[in-house]
């Protein structure tokens, strides 16, 4: 009755409310934890001590170089056809504007195909605003990640983006973006749905729109750490079942949802098992990835460092899409793997977390490892509101629910335990 023992201990027993309380203490103490900052390193030290306080001492940190991009003052003002200040968030690693800012007319496009319909001379010297309507994150995030490079290739002087979210109360959403070699680097920022839609309406009426954009930032590199907590297996200690979340966050909000919740349910796995004295056959490794937000930097470093031992990863799990009520797992692997996980998920009928979603590239950080052939899964949860808060000042403890975090921690722990303990390795 191992699964029920874990569920009871976490949901109604001694551990009830602990995940929420520990997450709240963490995010209230440190707030946002951007890559390359001292506060991120302090938060890593805090997690190490918190783990030691649970009498779990098999902890390793692995250093790597991470970006340290720091946001300075940012303003966006519509000058024509009327004066209006607009909320914005510069996108990750964006270059700065001149001190006086960039003042230019805008062109509004809803896709790269629409951008391509304009000649280079139409775009040259303009600010391009991408305003795709949110469908799915995967479909629309390309305008955030590639928009500046594609606009610059046609001669634009700056790139703006309708925030990648289905819902807004005038909240801009940060996020990463990437420049291309041999293309000028231009400032890139996200604006709110409300302002993007206002600009679209004015633009569609054929009126001239002139904006002034000021963005300042610094960009250098620092050393950070991935943190590995091992809960040693009894029979096959070299074999790993990895549970993970990232410890860094954007520089807005508290990073409570992204990815504080994922961090703390993954931290809870060895803690709960240790408290219950449940020892699986294989080792459970809880990883706190660093520098996810600026491009999966920690996961890429881990994959490179541990490439020769990748065969020992039996299964890899990540929670980075919310820790709302768990529904099951989004699983990458062959048919046999998915059948084994499907059988394991049947153990979670009592909490309605039995759904297996087929996903060839689940998660964010773990996608780096899954694409090398390692089977894995991300937490499938009731996260329909996730992108309302994603990368905004609204990503705070208020997003989190104590009971749902209990359900998530219990599910995550029990699922990892069963995968780590069954007699059969998860097949490749």
């Amino acid at each position: 009755n191992v699964v029920n023992e874990i569920l009871n201990y976490v949901i109604v027993g001694e551990y009830k409310g602990q995940t929420y309380n520990e997450l709240a203490k963490f995010v209230d103490k440190f707030g946002a934890r951007p890559s390359g900052t001292e506060v991120l390193e302090q938060s890593i030290d805090y997690m190490i001590q918190l783990t030691r306080d649970e009498n779990i001492n098999d902890i390793t940190t692995e250093e790597l170089t991470v970006p340290h991009w720091t946001r300075g003052e940012e303003t966006l003002t519509m000058l024509e056809p009327r004066v209006k200040n607009m909320a914005l968030l510069g996108l990750g690693r964006s270059v700065t504007t001149p001190p006086e800012g960039i003042t230019a007319e805008i062109v509004v496009v809803n896709s790269f195909a629409e951008l391509d319909k304009y000649s280079d001379s139409d775009i040259e010297g303009k600010i391009v605003l991408y305003d795709p309507i949110f469908t799915t994150y995967g479909e629309t995030v390309q305008y955030r990640s590639q928009g500046a490079a594609k606009a610059a290739a046609k001669g634009a002087v700056a790139s703006l983006l309708r925030s990648i979210t289905p819902f807004s109360i005038n909240s801009p959403h940060a996020g990463s973006q990437y420049y291309e070699e041999n293309v000028p680097k231009i400032p890139a920022a996200a604006i709110t749905l409300e302002d993007a839609d206002l600009l679209r309406r004015i633009y569609s009426r054929g009126e001239k729109i002139v904006l002034n954009l000021k963005m300042f930032s610094t960009d250098n590199s620092r050393i950070s750490r991935n943190t590995l907590v091992d809960y040693k297996g009894t029979e096959k200690p070299e074999k790993l079942v990895i549970v993970s979340g990232h410890i860094d966050s954007w520089d807005v909000g508290q990073g409570a949802m992204d990815d504080g919740g994922g961090l703390f349910i993954s931290w809870a796995v060895p803690v709960i098992l240790n408290r219950l004295n449940l020892k699986p056959r294989r080792t459970i490794r809880s990883i706190f990835w660093t520098a996810e937000e600026l491009g999966l930097i920690g996961a890429k470093a881990y994959e490179e460092k541990h490439r020769s031992e990748a065969d020992n990863i039996n299964f890899i799990m990540e929670s980075d899409e919310g820790t709302f009520a768990p529904l099951g797992l989004a699983v990458a692997g062959n048919a046999e793997t998915r059948c084994i996980i499907k059988e394991i998920l049947k153990l979670f009928k009592s909490i309605n977390a039995t759904t297996l979603v087929e996903d060839d590239s689940p998660g964010s950080d773990i996608a780096v490892i899954i694409q090398t052939g390692v089977p894995g899964a991300s937490l499938h949860n009731d996260n329909s509101m996730y992108f309302w808060f994603h990368h905004t000042e609204g990503d705070t403890m208020n997003v989190e629910d104590e009971h749902e975090l209990d359900l998530g921690a219990a599910f995550w722990t029990a699922a990892a335990y069963v995968i780590a303990d069954i007699s059969k390795d998860i097949p490749r």
């Binding site: 191992v2 084994i340 499907k342 394991i344 153990l347």
Partner: peptide
Amino acid sequence: KVVYKDDVCNVLIGDDLIAEIASYE
């Protein structure tokens, strides 16, 4: 999407493993 019906999984992973997994509940 939800995949693989039980009869397919029974063939793929076998009754013994299914029973072993069920024993964890």
